[in-house]
């Protein structure tokens, strides 16, 4: 599906829609910010560079926080963490969801029943509360946070993949493959999965946004890794000073908003590009 010749067309398709173009522009900015954080702010996000409570658009672009840390530096380094968490958590979710959903959908029978009962178990846990419990028990480190987000979020994707695999499995070309004597795994990976991929890509792209919000929420509640600067942490720390210094909360809040918005816009554009019939 995403072969070399199709790639430019897909990108062009995304960019041709206004939502996709805006989304890509925003996301590219965030990615560049993350990449060049250590060039732009070599002293790091925790360094107290100036006087505390400096308002934005003065000596410091986004002002300083209550300890005199540069908020712009926090935004740049926080972008790294948000993107990292979004990407890695989504990767884990997609892998888990695809494996469980694919096997359950393809084989059916007791495998399906067992897999679906497990996913139901995970779906009954309120996701954010589940993540809080996992992080609180295992301790607030970045791998634990990513793991917690993945653990509470993979189940819906597994069900989605299962449903898609089941419907594709009933098609004639799959029966043809079977009659040619192809192995189960080969059919699943080579024949069925490419036909389900567009669904996974669209669902996955939206997961990135959810994962970023989860991480921000956990950090806001003080369950982030205290050694890492994140946007959620900045919002949580600035909250007590909100009446005195609006920018400490507002600026990282806008960063979260724009990033999540960008990813959602791209997700919508992807959906339109990959499933043109689904919407119209």
């Amino acid at each position: 599906m995403l072969s070399n010749s199709a790639k430019p067309t897909l990108l062009r398709k995304i960019l041709s829609t206004p939502t996709g173009a805006i989304g890509m522009a925003l996301l590219t900015t965030v990615i560049l910010l993350a990449l060049f954080a250590s060039v732009l702010f070599p002293e790091g996000p925790f360094e107290m560079v100036g006087a505390p409570f400096r308002p934005p658009f003065g000596e410091y672009l986004f002002g300083t926080d209550m300890l005199g840390r540069d908020i712009a530096a926090g935004i740049a380094y926080g972008a790294r963490i948000s993107l990292l968490v979004g990407a890695v958590a989504t990767l884990v979710i997609v892998l888990l969801g695809t494996v469980v959903g694919g096997l359950a959908g393809y084989y059916g029978g007791w495998i399906d029943t067992a897999a679906m009962r497990v996913t139901e178990f995970f779906q009954t846990i309120p996701t954010f509360i589940g993540a809080i419990v996992i992080v609180a028990v295992l301790g607030p480190t970045l791998p634990n946070i990513i793991g917690a987000i993945a653990v509470v979020s993979w189940a819906p994707l597994a069900r989605l993949v299962r449903a898609e695999v089941r419907s594709v499995k009933g098609r004639e070309f799959v029966e043809a493959c079977l009659s040619l004597g192809m192995g189960d795994m080969r059919i699943l990976v080579v024949q069925i999965l490419p036909n389900v991929l567009s669904t996974i890509v669209v669902a996955g792209s939206l997961m990135v946004a959810t994962a970023i919000l989860f991480e921000a929420g956990l950090s806001f509640l003080g369950l982030g890794d205290p050694n890492i600067m994140t946007w959620g942490f900045m919002i949580g720390a600035g909250r007590s000073a909100i009446r005195t210094a609006w920018w400490m909360v507002t600026i990282p809040g806008i960063a979260v908003l724009l990033t999540v918005l960008a990813i959602n816009l791209i997700g919508d554009a992807l959906n339109e590009a990959l499933n043109p019939r689904a919407k119209r």
Partner: peptide, 21 residues
């Protein structure tokens, strides 16, 4: 917050501090 300041201040003399909440 005080932990974060202490981490920065001790970092200046080469003592690397990891915070654990």
């Amino acid at each position: 917050r005080m932990g974060e300041v202490i981490k920065q201040q001790l970092g200046k003399v080469g003592i690397e501090v990891e915070l654990r909440n």
